[in-house]
Design a protein around this nucleic acid. Structure first.
Length: 350
DNA sequence: AAGGCCCACAACCGCCTTCGT
DNA sequence: GACGAAGGCGGTTGTGGGCCT
């Protein structure tokens, strides 16, 4: 793709006689009236036509983020916040894509909200906002009297983190629940990482459960296995599903189908059923708008215009039954079997 | 009361993609 | 296919207001 220098050479952006900084009420009125009259577009020539001493891009930004009638004002609602978190976990910093799923919200608004609120909130919970995995602190601190564990990272990368424990106790209304972060409920967990190469990973892969709370590990070995699984939270639970290793196209296909399923309705609990009826989901994803969006997205990443969305693959149905106590028992057994000479003994369960 | 600091958010900037010719 | 204009995106910066000392 040819790189251009249009922004530095075109008339509206010569920076000579161009006003910068906050917009005045008068400028807003001129811009709004002009766009209402002439419509959106031709931003580069708009300032001259409208009589504004602004850069065309600045005009577009002002309209898109502030003046547009559809822009929603006011605080981000809890359900919107929840949605942003889910989408960010799936999409990363693709603010426009995220904003497209929140009616009336702009990418700039969501980006700001993320940077000022949500990322900090995640950090407080002991979650890396970039990766949605538990923050890994590269030291091991043993508890001195078996009641307080600050931060422990075992050789297999199991993060025992006090802040996560606090989150768990808060969620379950339990005081001083001393089981470390391994018993965090899934919805408080960052992206699940299944590492088949690790002992814990093997235990989990052989587990009767189709999804597990987070096992976070530092180091590159996890990264190479991430291609095996993508997951997402639906309601209170995290779901891990599998598809062909390194098939990034299938991964993105799956992502788009799942995204669409997320927004078919506001009731997230319906998503479990939708996941289990994934093949029907793929079939219904051919509605014009979704197809267009998918093709746009697909083309964006693969440079192919005519990808047929009806051929989208979807992972096999997964069981969504999950019982925390069962998982705790199984996981604690796994920990007990894990022989790691460098780490402290596994925490007591009861 | 004044200055410093912090935070939230609007706006800017550079780069990339898309589209028309 | 090459080119340039236009639009879009995400990272970063600027700024105003509130809070603290």
């Amino acid at each position: 793709m040819t790189k251009t220098t249009a922004t530095s050479t075109t008339p509206c952006c010569t920076k000579i006689g161009i006003k910068k900084g906050p917009w005045s009420a008068e400028e807003d009125e001129i811009l709004a009236n002009f766009v209402h009259r002439e419509g959106e577009g031709r931003w580069r020539t708009l300032p001259k036509r409208a009589g504004l001493q602004r850069c065309g891009k600045s005009c577009r930004l002002r309209w898109m983020n502030y003046l547009r009638p559809s822009v929603k004002r006011g605080q981000i609602a809890p359900d919107e916040e929840d949605l942003i978190l889910r989408l960010h976990r799936l999409l990363g910093n693709r603010w426009a894509l995220i904003a497209g799923r929140l009616p009336g919200r702009t990418d700039n608004e969501i980006k700001n909200y993320w940077n000022t609120h949500l990322s900090k909130k995640l950090i407080k919970r002991g979650i890396d906002p970039r990766t949605h995995k538990a923050l890994v602190i590269n030291n091991t601190t043993n508890n001195n009297n078996s009641t307080t564990i600050t931060t422990t990272v075992t050789s297999n990368g199991v993060v025992l983190n006090d802040s996560l424990k606090v989150g768990y106790n808060h969620h379950h209304h339990r005081l001083h629940h001393d089981r470390c972060s391994i018993v965090m409920p899934p919805q408080q967990q960052p992206m699940t990482v299944v590492n088949p190469a690790s002992e814990i990973g093997n235990v989990i892969n052989n587990s009767k459960f189709d999804y597990v709370p987070t096992i976070s590990a530092g180091g590159g070995d996890i990264e190479e296995h991430n291609n095996n699984a993508i997951n997402d939270a639906t309601g209170d639970e995290s779901i891990v599903f599998y598809h062909e290793k390194n098939d990034t196209a299938a991964e993105e296909d799956t992502l788009m189908v799942f995204l669409n399923s997320l927004f078919d309705g506001n009731n997230n609990t319906n998503n479990e059923a939708k996941m289990n009826n994934s093949n029907e989901n793929a079939a219904t994803a051919t509605e014009e708008e979704e197809l267009a969006e998918f093709q746009h997205y697909y083309h964006h990443h693969h440079g192919q215009h005519d990808h047929d969305a009806t051929t989208m693959m979807f992972p096999p149905p997964v069981s969504t039954s999950f019982h925390l106590e069962d998982w705790e028992a199984e996981f604690s057994n796994a920990l007990m079997n894990q022989q790691d000479a460098s780490s402290s003994p596994p925490p007591s369960i009861k």
